[in-house]
């Protein structure tokens, strides 16, 4: 499904078992339906499950699913969730270094991360190098722009309007002067 890195062994086969044929989007949607405690424990299942169950968007969803009223952000969504679980202090911040695994590629996770974290420093909207397109489908956006370059679509820009066209995507909105 996703491109493989050179000679590295692909972690998907062992690390996902029977679930390896599923798109990452669907794997993520299962994890989002777990409780924070179950989602955290899934990290011990395999390296790939560790990667998927440590994604910030997952923890943001889990926080918002369980939110009732005031939510105090603790520097990351995972920490925010852990603080909400009424744990002993030693579990709240996580220990030391996170684990790293190579041999796992996910275009889905990368695109989501890119959309949320990319810098727009080298792009200029006013008479610059950002294309303005009137109607763009989700498919065209994926194929032509996602992770490649920004695109300006809307005259009357609002987060609501963008979410209406791209309801299943993660975005980080920024408004330039």
């Amino acid at each position: 499904m996703e491109a493989q890195a050179h000679n590295q062994r692909d972690r998907r086969i062992d690390g996902l078992g029977d679930l390896r044929v599923l798109p990452d989007e669907i794997l993520c949607s299962i994890l989002e339906r777990l409780t924070p405690r179950d989602a955290a424990r899934v990290a011990c299942v395999s390296s790939v499950m560790y990667i998927l169950s440590n994604e910030e968007p997952l923890w943001m969803s889990l926080c918002l699913n369980g939110a009732s009223g005031f939510l105090e952000y603790k520097g990351s969504w995972k920490k925010t969730a852990l603080h909400n679980e009424n744990l002993p202090d030693k579990y709240k911040e996580g220990h030391g270094q996170p684990l790293h695994f190579d041999g796992f590629n996910s275009l889905f996770l990368y695109r989501r991360l890119y959309r949320c974290r990319t810098t727009l420093d080298t792009f200029y909207t006013e008479g610059g190098n950002v294309e303005r397109i009137k109607d763009i489908s989700l498919k065209d956006f994926y194929n032509e722009y996602d992770v490649k370059k920004p695109v300006q679509r809307l005259k009357n820009f609002s987060s609501k309007a963008v979410l209406k066209i791209f309801p299943f995507c993660w975005f980080c909105f920024s408004v330039n002067n």
């Binding site: 690390g15 996902l16 029977d18 395999s46 390296s47 499950m49």
Partner: peptide
């Protein structure tokens, strides 16, 4: 954790 591994046929690769 063992139950989830068995259910999905996942190898412990840690």
């Amino acid at each position: 954790v063992e139950y989830v591994r068995r259910y999905f046929g996942i190898e412990n690769d840690f």
